[in-house]
């Protein structure tokens, strides 16, 4: 690991000031992604600002009926929070489907949004990678790309965003609150992560020096009809090959409103609003689900070793929609692999 200096921020203003005052500095939350990348020399910050103990760990009601998730609340405290379990069980399920209890105890909500891709070449500093070293090329295109994306890829990068939590968030559409050298602002979750285009070095739209302070969930939590389906190489403690988050509002057997987002398929959590529109007003039948799933993957492109993801995603969407419509997943249940 490269040498660096370290400080612990006392409040948000102190954190922003400290980061701005040091070149090549980085915030650190739980450290579960950043320290890993520093050990591999993928990231080499010269100064770390510890934000994990900032007073941003509360989970509290918002006046508009929503729920504020503090940026430094851990993934565990968020998943097991009583309000999250009751009002946003989709989020509870998605968080518990990710990583391990030890990692979730350390990982923060802010860090989860900011975690970097698991593309093999991004981690391997001996190989070209446009995300790690802009302009060096993409080793995954034509290489081993089993974990890479099938939607929204570019000629510069085909990496995926690896988070489970963020797939549920894409469906729930919170607002991301940030503080930076130029003050506070909010970013719609939909606009937080970005597609690679010709600048894959940027995972998201956070400006230099900005600190995430909270995620503000709207009131609507789809607590009755939801599903988080995660498909992976082993039953637990593995990243998603494909995952699907669904939230439905039902009127008898008719879908009144729908949310649909996919993980493991793109550079950002992939919410498909045109598919949501197609579901609206339709009967919750196998025919509807099949049609919508085909629509979502219609423009998907395989890269060789990840071709299987197209069919896997199509089937996963059908299954998750069915589970959500039938209310199969129960609020507060432990995630046991989405059987």
């Amino acid at each position: 690991m490269h040498p660096f200096t370290y400080s612990r921020a006392t409040d948000v203003a102190d954190a922003v000031r400290d980061k701005a005052g040091h070149v090549a500095s980085a915030y650190i939350g739980g450290g579960t992604n950043l320290i890993d990348l520093m050990k591999m020399n993928v990231e080499q910050p010269a100064h770390l600002v510890n934000v994990a103990k900032l007073p941003l760990s509360k989970i509290e009601d918002l006046p508009d009926g929503g729920l504020r998730l503090g940026a430094t609340a851990t993934n565990s405290d968020t998943a097991w929070n009583e309000d999250v379990k009751k009002r946003y069980p989709l989020l509870n399920q998605a968080i518990l489907a990710g990583a391990s209890p030890q990692l979730r105890n350390a990982a923060t909500n802010g860090g989860n949004l900011m975690q970097r891709t698991r593309c093999y070449y991004f981690y391997d500093v001996a190989t070209p990678c446009n995300k790690r070293e802009p302009g060096s090329g993409c080793s995954a295109i034509g290489g081993y790309n089993r974990v890479c994306g099938i939607l929204g890829t570019s000629e510069a990068c085909i990496a995926t965003h690896p988070s489970d939590m963020c797939v549920a968030l894409a469906a729930l559409a919170p607002t991301v609150r940030v503080s930076g050298p130029n003050g506070e602002r909010t970013i719609a979750f939909e606009d937080f992560h970005r597609l690679p285009g010709d600048q894959p070095e940027f995972d998201n739209t956070l400006a230099e020096g900005e600190l995430i302070t909270s995620l503000d969930l709207p009131e609507k939590g789809f607590a009755k009809n939801f599903a988080y389906l995660k498909l992976r190489d082993r039953h637990s403690y593995a990243f998603a090959l494909v995952s699907v988050a669904v939230g439905l509002e039902m009127d008898g057997d008719t879908i009144k409103e729908a949310r649909l987002a996919l993980g493991g398929v793109a550079h950002k959590p992939w919410r498909d609003q045109s598919a949501e529109d197609l579901l609206k007003g339709q009967p919750a039948t196998a025919e509807t689900f099949g049609r919508v799933a085909a629509h979502v993957v219609a423009n998907a492109v395989g890269q060789g070793s990840n071709d299987f993801k197209i069919e896997l995603a199509r089937r996963a969407i059908v299954r998750a929609l069915k589970q959500a419509a039938e209310g199969q997943q129960q609020a507060g249940d432990m995630y046991l692999g989405g059987q």
Binding site: Y6, G31, I35, P101, Q102, L103, N105
Partner: peptide, 20 residues
């Protein structure tokens, strides 16, 4: 795995200075 304030975490992915 060790317990920090009673909670289990992986001690390899955290810095000692973060646990003053």
């Amino acid at each position: 795995t060790v317990l920090v304030n009673g909670l289990r975490i992986n001690s390899c992915l955290t810095l000692a200075v973060m646990h003053e």
